[in-house]
Amino acid sequence: MPELLQFLFSGVTVGAVYALVALGFTIIYNASDVVNFAQGEFVMLGGMLTFVCHAAGLPLPLAALIAIAATSAIGVAMNKLAIEPARGAPVVSLIIITIGASIFIRGGAQLLFGKQIHSFPAFSGDTPLRIGGATILPQSLWVIGGAVVVFVGLWLFFTRTLTGRAVLATSNNRLAAQLVGINTGFVMTLSFALSAGIGALAGVLATPITLTSYDVGLAFALKGFAAAMLGGMGNPKGALAGGFLLGLIEALTAGYLSSQYKDAAAFVVILLVLFFMPQGLFGQKSVDRV
């Protein structure tokens, strides 16, 4: 029994990271129908920039804030320089542009930060907490808490605020959004800033556990994307559920079978779900999304 609990703990921790990445996907997708494959690079930048600022002598919270703000700015710049000039191009082209941007960011990070693996101290120490015979790191609780807080924040944003509704309206019909007075250019800027900031936050929270290097982004992007698809692209609830589910499947497979199979098991489940529910678990790209 403690064994199962242990696997669940590690699954929920990893799942929370996936959920945060998936939530980042959700926002840009909602605003523009674009799946932003540079989302994983935002995670890398969050961890890496925090490391750099911390190593330069800044206190950790300040370093994290700077990293999140800088990553948001990079997200906005990516929108302005790479996505906006191609507005009107088919969504597929835009998605390919985001893949290009992710390669560019990864290359830049390799040049600037080198190939070493980096980390910084956990926020609340490294002493594991014992619960029911299993252990969990305090940093795991930070990651899980982060995912939940971001989820609730986004849910309130999309359902309760006029700006959140403007994002949904822009995604549904950009022309109509302009005609009711929504500044759709600003909606895009905001979406990239938010998405990048959330990605960076994931990197800040996860790095003490997962460590970071210039090339961790791709794996985060793929897993976050898979989680978002599993839950239903565009739905914050789906992103959260998909992230946790994916993390749990991986942890249980790794625990009871072999860690060699964990990726395969995750993708088999995703394929099955998408086969029977093409819109994902919470899909329904329609009214109840709002």
Partner: peptide, 20 residues
């Protein structure tokens, strides 16, 4: 060019996007 994913009422509310 209505907002097909949103409800009729939400469409109308967005029509009044500039007003609170």
């Amino acid at each position: 060019q209505i907002f097909t994913n949103l409800t009729v009422e939400e469409n109308l509310r967005l029509g009044a996007y500039l007003f609170t």
